[in-house]
């Protein structure tokens, strides 16, 4: 994605360099709570900060590659698709992320959560 897509409302949430590597960060926006992750490969991914199992806060999970392990009962969640990994099921909402001039923006219109 090269441009800030005009169809979406982008919100600036953080400076890229200030996000800790391989960890999550809680972001509140109005009623919503998101978890954003800066991965070891440099990518930033954002998902809703609630596990589909029992609302675990995902920002505090252990991050491995592009997955996060829910801190409450260890469900493994794919950060880019939001899909809970086998044998568990479920899906977390994901949000588009855009980095420009060292700033991290998040689209608060959701990407469709369910991969088909």
């Amino acid at each position: 994605m090269n441009n800030l897509n005009k169809d979406k409302s982008w919100i600036e949430v953080a400076k890229y360099d200030e996000l800790p590597v391989n960890s999550g960060k809680t972001v509140r926006f109005k009623e919503k709570e998101l978890a954003i992750f800066r991965l070891t490969n440099g990518k930033i991914l954002a998902i809703e900060n609630r596990c589909p199992h029992k609302d675990g806060v995902l920002a505090e999970g252990i991050v491995s590659g592009e997955y996060v392990f829910c801190p409450l009962h260890d469900r493994k969640i794919d950060l880019s698709s939001g899909l809970v990994q086998k044998p568990d099921t479920g899906c977390v909402k994901t949000f588009d992320v855009f980095v420009q001039n060292g700033k991290v923006y998040i689209a608060l219109l959701e990407k469709s959560g369910i991969a088909s």
Binding site: I11, E12, V13, A14, E18, P20, S23, K25, T26, V27, R28, F29, I106
Partner: peptide, 11 residues
């Protein structure tokens, strides 16, 4: 404090 305990309030 910032890395672990901060919550970002986006506007």
């Amino acid at each position: 404090q910032k890395d672990l305990y901060e919550v970002i309030e986006a506007k």
